[in-house]
Computed example of a mutant assay.
Amino acid sequence: MLIPTARSVGAIVSVMNEERTIVKVMEQLNRLPLDEIIIIVNGSSDRTLEKVRAHSHALIVHYPDPLGHDVGRSIGAKLSHSDILLFLDGDFVVEAEKLIPFIYDIERGSDLALNNITPYLPTFSLWDSVTLMKRFLNITLKRPELNANSLTAVPHALSRNALEHIGCSELMVPPKAQVNAILTGLRITAPTSVNVISMNKIRSHNKGENNPVARLIIGDHVEALELAMKLKGERIVFPDNIRKREFLER
């Protein structure tokens, strides 16, 4: 398949125990003329590493211990030399056709092309705590049009310019990277929708209310809000027009 850019494009895939899906993920990536593919295999106890080696010419980075998807993406970004970076996970398959809009939006000038999950969200009253936190962060930074779209969800794409402004290490906590991107004035869009909500693999640590993954993501958003307050003050981007605080200081 052709891709709508002359710039170099790389895909970064973080995987852990994905022997059932990783080959199909690679098959879709191999349909695109990518300049590089970087696979971060971490903490796998199954045959994920063997299957990646057998079905791809990707740069493979193997860690015996689990790192988490976000750390894996950060490592992949640091190793990448591409102008456009496409981020995926190895636990569900996204057709190559659905990845092209992310690349095209970066080509057209965006710095972050997020996955627009809005069409797949239930009525607001049924939102879970993670979705509420994603929405809250965007509203707090005066980007309500982003709804609950976040760097926490894949697929998404970043420009080289975004990576240089945000820094690879910040990708370890995606909401903090998003705060940096918004406050730096980077162009953020959500050009297309991939239904990762229904495709997300249910595991013991990500099911049920207040599960470990939900707590982790909410904690990441608290860190992001703390960063925003550090950079912009306690009220972040909201003015304090009513209180006359100076009278208390007299």
Rank of each mutant, 00 (worst) to 15 (best):
L151R: 05
K232S: 08
A181G: 06
M133I: 03
P33R: 14
A224V: 05
V179Q: 10
L227Q: 03
S129N: 11
V15R: 09
M229P: 00
S125V: 13
L132K: 08
R250T: 05
I84S: 08
P66F: 00
L141H: 04
A96F: 06
R73W: 13
P101G: 05
D70N: 12
I139L: 15
K24R: 14
V9E: 10
V93Q: 14
T131E: 02
N206A: 08
P4N: 06
H221K: 06
S169T: 15
D65T: 12
L158Y: 04
I39N: 06
K24P: 01
L146P: 06
L231Y: 01
P101M: 08
L183K: 03
N206G: 04
V179Y: 12
K176P: 04
L88A: 02
M172P: 01
E95K: 09
T48G: 03
L34S: 05
G10T: 09
S44E: 01
R135G: 07
R135M: 09
N210E: 12
R235A: 14
S193R: 08
A162D: 04
S159H: 04
V237W: 00
F92G: 02
S129C: 10
R31K: 15
K207Y: 08
L132C: 10
L32T: 07
L112A: 09
N161K: 11
V173Q: 12
I84G: 10
D111P: 01
K230Q: 11
I103H: 14
T21N: 08
K244N: 10
K207A: 13
I166W: 15
D128S: 07
A11N: 14
V222Y: 06
V93T: 11
R243I: 00
F136Y: 08
N17P: 04
L86K: 02
E95V: 00
N206T: 03
